[in-house]
Amino acid sequence: MEIFSIIMILFLIGSAIAVSAIKNLLGAIIAFTVYSLVMAILWQQLNAPDLAITEAAVGAGITTLLFIFTLKKN
């Protein structure tokens, strides 16, 4: 349980740094989607299931969609 949380936090930091480091914008957006999904898992671990549902629907769903359509316009 504790080990799992630590691994997830390391994954989170890794994907956050990847967002900052990747030059390709589509790659950065996909790294941000991974970040949101891992964050949803972490909130389930911290006993906040309603936040986990919302984050999975909003952070990984709608926000990514908006980002990708903005990128398509440019």
Partner: peptide, 15 residues
């Protein structure tokens, strides 16, 4: 400098 990366950074800060 890129605006999309700025917005993603804002999201990361908030979460």
């Amino acid at each position: 400098n890129n605006l999309i990366k700025k917005i993603i950074g804002m999201n990361i800060m908030d979460t």
